[in-house]
Nucleic acid binder design. Structure first.
Lengths: 227, 227
DNA sequence: GCAAAAGTGTTGTGACTACACCCATGG
DNA sequence: CCATGGGTGTAGTCACAACACTTTTGC
């Protein structure tokens, strides 16, 4: 039968690292594999790309099919291409080249899926080259925080500056100066005050903070000059 | 026969944009197509990826097979992955997804191949989505000039600072301040003086310049802090 | 009033821009 | 000695880090 013959071309797949910030930590969406290879292992959702779909559509399909992500939640999902991984033996089933995607979701989403701390996964426990993909995803997010408004894809439409700083600190992995963080992001024109005071939810005394919003919601780079 | 049956998976290809700086302009390596589609058109070299090769090897093969680049010159070639292009109808022959690569060669190489000014190609004359790939390549090079020593892949091992500034100006597309360019690159620790005076080749009088070299030859990012 | 958290102001340091000036060589 | 191009110094401006201070709330 034709299906038994070895393929002459590599198989093309997508793997998605969906990241989320909560409780000052960075989390990634994993699913538990059911088939060979690596049955029962936690892995990034991924599928083989079909002829009639784009890579982005394949990435979305990986999330709904493999990670049981509800289709409605895809609208709130930021997806961007990371890189293409092509090590010869990255998949024991045969030559598979995978386009990795970075996904971002807002903390407000109550996804009924399996989240895991990124920090705990950098010890070689992930199958395939998924640790490398995850590291690439975190690096990309870290880099884009510095010169774009990509944090808008992580936070709700309005937020407290402390929340925003928490996202930066969780992703960059270090603490930032409160006063300077505020003035820098405001002076860059990245965020603006809404004039609305935040409902002090778990607040134990203290002045209630204003809510802020990103000036633009599309991810945009800030220009930097070289001389 | 099996070969007549429509494939159920996309074909994976690589396309390479090899850039070069000379005479203050940016040039790209193209080859003239012989087959359908777009026969006789100038296009970026590209091939379908084979099962037993990496993407990088496929990119190198595209340059030797399609653009007649001598194998020996591959050692001096910087190749880095750009992005993967997946528009549904980017190739009229059928679903083809292409991993684009950026190549850089030193001006000193006397390649017997077909170079074309990048500036003249941004008018929709390239076939497929090759203009988009070319623009991505130039953007990547432009960006990396600002925070890495990638210019080391374009220049010979030692060079005059004016040469280096010429590379920056050609790629960035604007003129830079001579004094500040010098002091910035030196203070960054990117380049250092060799102590050797340049042979004043086409010089019409004037103090002979020192030769400089990059401190490290591997492409390395300069760290930037965010607060 | 006091603690807690938000928000503002200040000051020293270092980087960047623009520009003027000095140096060394060929003709 | 002068034109030409390489190389150096400086002053104003701006961004940034560190830190102190003020404001507004709950208790």
């Amino acid at each position: 039968m034709a299906s038994q013959k070895p393929l002459e071309r590599p198989v093309l797949a997508v793997d998605v690292a969906v990241l989320r910030v909560e409780d000052g930590r960075l989390w990634v969406l994993l699913h538990r594999r059911r088939e060979e290879p690596f049955p029962n292992a936690l892995a990034l959702p991924g599928v083989a790309v079909q002829v009639e779909e784009t890579l982005r559509e394949a990435a979305a399909r990986a999330l709904t099919d493999k990670a049981s992500l509800a289709r409605e939640l895809l609208r709130d999902l930021h997806l961007e291409q990371l890189a293409t991984f092509d090590a010869l033996f990255r998949d024991p089933r045969g030559r598979t080249i995978s386009v990795a995607y970075l996904g971002l979701v807002r903390s407000a989403l109550g996804l009924d899926v399996s989240w895991h701390q990124v920090q705990d996964l950098l010890d070689g426990s992930l199958p395939f080259d998924h640790q490398q993909i995850l590291e690439t995803a975190v690096d990309r997010l870290r880099g884009k925080l510095r010169y774009t408004n990509i944090a808008a894809q992580i936070l709700p439409p309005t937020f407290r500056i402390e929340q925003l700083q928490g996202v930066y600190e969780a992703v960059l992995g270090r603490s930032l100066n409160r006063a300077n963080f505020r003035s820098k992001l405001l002076k860059l024109g990245l965020i603006e005050q809404t004039g609305i005071l935040s409902e002090a939810v778990g607040q134990q005394g203290g002045r209630p903070p204003y809510l802020y919003r990103f000036v633009t919601m599309e991810v945009e780079a800030q220009d930097r000059d070289f001389l």
